[in-house]
């Protein structure tokens, strides 16, 4: 277990989770419902969490600028909906359209982050924050024509929430759904996630992937070995942006809605928190951290809702979620900082 670095956040979240499962049993919330939903939520958010890995490995830090990638994905989805594509094809088309957008945005985003070495996280946060109102501009004047996406009155400007019911909502969720003992297992969805994880794992075994890891660990060493550090970092950022774009596609189909405008603003923080719960510490990040972290984190999210409802305090769930999210990130910052301070 030491390999996965069991730290206070993990212990805390596991204890919290066990407590809530006990409470859930007490309130007679059905267990099979929890497990099926937990599996869906794992993938729904897991891809977004996975998108943090390349940048972490390349030593750029947590991608607090996740909205940049998310916006690329949203754009792809919107194009797909505008073409009225349905089912899995619609979703795949959305993903396909979002990739070139992600590469383009990632390139620009990378150029910015390469200028601010050592201050990437704070800069990424504000690049992400300022990108959202910029895109809001775009959403209001975007030349889309499918009335399902536009304001019903006036017919101009995108709706903040676009229902996907008649397009590709749950297209991937329902693929090869198997029911075992009352638990619905979304096999297709899980396979898709596994495939993405495997691809990323294989990528880090290639020469280029190794160079990326080396840049994260020791930039000067990599430079001396003839690696173009700026180029590798840019590609790590593009890769993160691309996976984030795919991530929002999976998220949106699972959720059943495309959320535009300010919705992506704060999405980076739960994702960051999830990977930290998994045991990621800076560049020491494995794919396993993503899976474990997302599962623990999202399951806590999931159970806390109905429990709070049972206790007649629905806001508490949300407050607790935010508090846990930020407490975990803060702990990670302090712990890593403390370690570095001791060495230096």
């Amino acid at each position: 277990m030491k390999r996965f670095g069991v730290q206070i956040p993990q212990v805390f979240i596991i204890v919290f989770l066990v407590l809530m499962v006990v409470l859930a049993l007490g309130f007679e919330i059905p267990m099979n419902w929890i497990i099926s939903d937990a599996l869906v939520r794992l993938v729904m958010n897991g891809v977004l969490v996975l998108s943090l890995v390349p940048m972490l490995k390349a030593g750029i830090g947590i991608n607090f600028g996740l909205p940049v990638g998310i916006v690329a994905g949203l754009l792809g989805l919107c194009i797909s909906v505008n073409l009225r594509m349905k089912g899995l094809w619609g979703l795949s088309a959305g993903m396909l359209f979002s990739v070139p957008v992600a590469i383009l945005l990632g390139y620009g985003y990378g150029a910015i982050l390469n200028r601010v070495k050592g201050k990437e996280e704070i800069t990424a946060t504000f690049v992400g924050f300022s990108f959202i109102p910029l895109m809001n501009f775009f959403w209001t004047i975007a030349p889309f024509s499918n009335p399902a996406m536009l304001w019903p009155i006036g017919g101009k400007g995108m709706r903040p929430v676009i229902g996907l019911k008649s397009y590709f909502a749950k297209a991937l969720n329902h693929l090869w759904m198997v029911e075992v003992m009352g638990v619905k297992i979304p096999v297709g969805l899980l396979l898709f996630f596994a495939l993405l994880c495997l691809l990323l794992f294989v990528f880090f075994r290639t020469n280029f992937g190794r160079a990326m890891t080396a840049v994260g660990e020791n930039e000067q060493f990599a430079r001396l070995a003839g690696v173009n550090v700026a180029r590798v970092r840019t590609w790590a950022i593009i890769l993160s942006t691309m996976i984030a774009a795919l991530g929002i596609c999976v998220y949106a189909q699972s959720y059943g809605f495309i959320e535009l405008y300010d919705a992506p603003l704060m999405m980076a923080f739960p994702a960051a928190s999830a990977i930290l719960v998994g045991g990621s510490m800076g560049r020491h990040t494995h794919i396993a951290h993503v899976v474990i972290g997302t599962f623990l984190f999202q399951t806590t999210y999931l159970i806390s809702g109905p429990i709070a409802n049972e206790m007649m305090l629905p806001e508490v769930a949300e407050i607790f979620r935010l508090m846990i999210t930020n407490a975990i990130i803060l702990y990670a910052l302090l712990y890593e900082g403390g370690k570095r301070h001791d060495v230096g």
């Binding site: 020791n218 000067q220 060493f221």
Partner: peptide, 9 residues
């Protein structure tokens, strides 16, 4: 240590 090696590899 800081320039010549990848200590974690």
């Amino acid at each position: 240590r800081s320039e010549g090696l990848l200590l974690d590899h």
